[in-house]
Design a protein around this nucleic acid. Sequence first.
DNA 1: GTGAAAGCGCTAACAA
DNA 2: TTGTTAGCGCTTTCAC
Lengths: 389, 389
Amino acid sequence: MGTAPRTKFARRPAPHPLFAARWRLCYRLRFPSGRAIDMSDTSKARTTVTVADVAALAGVHPSTVSRALNEGTQRVSAELVERVFAASKELGYRPNGIARALRMERSLSVGMIIPDISNPIYAPIVRGVEDVLRNAGRSVFVASTDNDLAREADSLTVMLDRKVDGILLATATRDYPHVERLQRANTPVVLINRATSTPWAPLVKVDDHKGVSLAVEHLQALGHTQIAHLAGTATVSSGYDRRHAFVRSMQEAGLPVDPTLIVSADIFGSPVGLKLGNLQARELLSRCVTFTAVIAANDLLAVGCYDVFAEAGIRVPEDVSIVGYHDMPLVNRLSPPLTTVRSPQYQLGAQAGTTILQEIASRSHEGTVLSLAPRLIVRGSTAAPRSEL
Amino acid sequence: MGTAPRTKFARRPAPHPLFAARWRLCYRLRFPSGRAIDMSDTSKARTTVTVADVAALAGVHPSTVSRALNEGTQRVSAELVERVFAASKELGYRPNGIARALRMERSLSVGMIIPDISNPIYAPIVRGVEDVLRNAGRSVFVASTDNDLAREADSLTVMLDRKVDGILLATATRDYPHVERLQRANTPVVLINRATSTPWAPLVKVDDHKGVSLAVEHLQALGHTQIAHLAGTATVSSGYDRRHAFVRSMQEAGLPVDPTLIVSADIFGSPVGLKLGNLQARELLSRCVTFTAVIAANDLLAVGCYDVFAEAGIRVPEDVSIVGYHDMPLVNRLSPPLTTVRSPQYQLGAQAGTTILQEIASRSHEGTVLSLAPRLIVRGSTAAPRSEL
DNA sequence: GTGAAAGCGCTAACAA
DNA sequence: TTGTTAGCGCTTTCAC
């Protein structure tokens, strides 16, 4: 008893190389062939079943267990495979993912970095990612960073330290400071919805030009010519691109582009969502320029307009039409229901999941851009402009 | 050259025990003290910096590196700690989380199982969990199961195989089939919002009796006596509890409890959310029983009522008052804005995170129930009943 | 087709 | 205080 291991990591009694083989065999004593496990041992030993245990019960070498379980009958005789599976099942063996990850140098996990999981815009993306990766046997670490660069750096560190097989990045800025680091880490990355100014990893996005031009064309068809744009922040490509798409779409439609009709988010420090929408809408009104319609860079900005216009006695859609972007839950229930560009968030995530799997399998699509088409959902917040009546 | 290792796992040239010490020392040759790393070796060796590399550069044993990095000056001389940190920094060393997890038998990760991450009700819970766990240096695996028991079983398997340190379970049913398995796995579990009928793990929930009674009292104060309840499914404790809380609150308020005024979700197969609300509202109307107010088990059911009442020509709140549950985003923008019981979803997650950390530190709070208080948010969907005018 | 042995990168027990 | 050694559980190379 004096030599009994005190802890799990205490030295084994007789590890002399010459007896290594025999030492393995002693497992058999613990599991007499064909019999159930001896439960009398109440120590932790019972809790964890390892390949060695299965090997012992099946009367084979651990490496054979591994081969049988992983490659089936490919390099192991059918009979042994049978025995190994039986033993594995009897003992309730489950491979230790950590050990496999260490040995095989792939963790079967993927990290996802997003601005905020509690934002209804991003959550469906995560769900799409999750569904695709689950089917591929991989798990997803999620980290929200609120677009805070320090938190972002931390999250990246954590993910890389955990040896994720790939990183899904939905927080990139156009001028993203962590690009080099990610490249150095040599971990596959897929960007979601936000591109960096120079391409270095595959990007899965929504076709913003398509989305904005759908909105512009819709408004034009209703008779609008003076259309304003509440732009998102230009530091991220989605805001930047939509703004440029707005200008281009207006030009393509032959409509005048008045810079004073574009209110950028960047002139107001940090606020986001609804509050930002309020500020932008007030700014727009204060500019004393006429407009009959507003295209907002996202739904919450549009809702922010609802507030400000209401308190200013401006009716929607009678006086001003409003178009949102994303089609988040319940915007169809606002009064009036919001006309908006529906971006396929779930599909975005699913596609990103597919792409990261490809990247993991073989790094190849460095600058690939995958654009998903949005769709215009026409509801009650848009109508013909007043002057047309 | 003939003896050069072909792969990372090829045998090292001279691992003879007698020379083990010297073999370690040979690392020093690769990193002459005080000089930068020799980059001429373009093989993969450069990519991964290990404790051995740091040890070599610092001129100490790997275990000393480990001690210095993990325990600081506690068991290592200040001078060596300094040297180790310097070497570590110079090489850009980062501990391999997988290896640590295997060795230390804790992965610093936690699994979270929820019905659906894309549901705005659950997303904030995840965020709360995430924030607390990040601060504790842990990462979160997220899995959505859509309340599908098979998917649930899979997710549990995956989490356990990955050796998560704990599991946050937001999908439990009252009669949860995986309890035994989780107990056997001996992994800490914290239940979120949904209890099992017999307690076995700590539970963090919203005080449903409080929430529902706030609603009942509010309606009673407005003069309502005939109050209906659209109940969630009774298979999960939140639905079950809220229904019972409704009955009890009505009794406590001295109001009559008419069973025909309670429409259970369970009589309609699988639909959820808004569609379920539609069905329940129609069922309620078809029962031809008078009521002046409805308390819905969640906001989407309430929104489902809006539809049905509108098409039936019943005005809210003039003819019927409606109270929701949760206060999800934008319900304050419905017309009329929804009066609802605000459940602190983020705090729920944060508290669950705190609790799982405690559980991981020391399993002790087996049957503990932590109830967070909800708050009634009064808006436009409730008013005095018609007959009172 | 199977066994032997090594080792992924790390930390903990032990020895000095 | 530091070095030595072993081993977490697995897969893989090599030898037969």
